[in-house]
Amino acid sequence: MCLGVPGQIVAIGDDAFQLATVDVCGVKRDVNISLICDESPQQLLGKWVLVHVGFAMSVIDEDEAKQTQEALIAMSQLEHEVGDFLGLNQK
């Protein structure tokens, strides 16, 4: 399964081939923006993007980004419960 994670662009270089810094739930990562940069990279500063394997795949709105973050956090909180359930079935 492939998963895109929402993050906000917090720093950016002068051209589309430089990496931008994206904040994903408080963790900052360098991300390639060449797939989403049609004009000046500076216009992407502050935008929310969907990140997959080090690339910003699309620009998304803030509400969608926050809803996706909440869903991912909820899924991670259930992960140990699912693991416990699967462990019980293997006994």
Rank of each mutant, 00 (worst) to 15 (best):
I73R: 04
Q69G: 06
L86M: 11
C37D: 07
R29K: 15
D30C: 00
S76I: 04
G13M: 06
M1Q: 02
K28M: 08
A71V: 07
D30Q: 10
F17V: 00
K47W: 04
V59W: 05
L50D: 13
E79C: 00
V5P: 06
C25M: 12
A56S: 11
I33V: 10
Q90D: 13
Q18R: 05
V31E: 06
K66R: 14
K47L: 05
I9P: 00
M75W: 11
G83Q: 11
F85N: 11
E64R: 07
I36D: 03
Q18D: 07
Q43A: 06
G54P: 05
I73T: 13
D38V: 04
V22A: 09
G13L: 01
S34A: 07
H80Q: 11
V24K: 14
G7H: 15
V10G: 14
Q8S: 01
L88F: 14
D61R: 00
D84W: 06
I9Q: 03
N32W: 01
V27Q: 15
E70C: 08
I73K: 08
I73L: 03
K47T: 07
P41L: 05
L45W: 09
E62A: 12
A65N: 03
G13K: 08
V82A: 10
F55H: 13
L35Q: 15
L44S: 08
Q77L: 08
L45M: 05
I33M: 06
G46I: 00
I12F: 10
G46R: 01
F17G: 04
S58R: 12
C25L: 07
Q42V: 01
L88D: 03
N89E: 09
A74S: 08
D84I: 06
E81L: 12
I33C: 01
I12T: 09
I73C: 06
A56N: 08
H52K: 13
E81K: 07
F55P: 08
S58T: 07
L35S: 15
Q42D: 03
V27H: 13
V22D: 09
S58L: 04
N89R: 09
L78E: 09
E70W: 01
D23G: 03
D61L: 00
A71R: 14
F55V: 06
V27T: 15
T68P: 01
S40W: 05
I12L: 05
V31L: 07
A16C: 10
P6M: 07
I12H: 12
E39V: 03
G4K: 15
A56L: 01
V5D: 02
D15E: 14
Q90N: 11
D84N: 14
A20N: 08
Q18G: 04
C25Y: 04
D61Y: 00
E79V: 03
N32P: 02
C2S: 02
G4W: 14
P6L: 06
A16P: 09
H52V: 04
D14M: 13
G46D: 07
H52L: 04
D84V: 10
W48L: 00
G26M: 02
E39S: 13
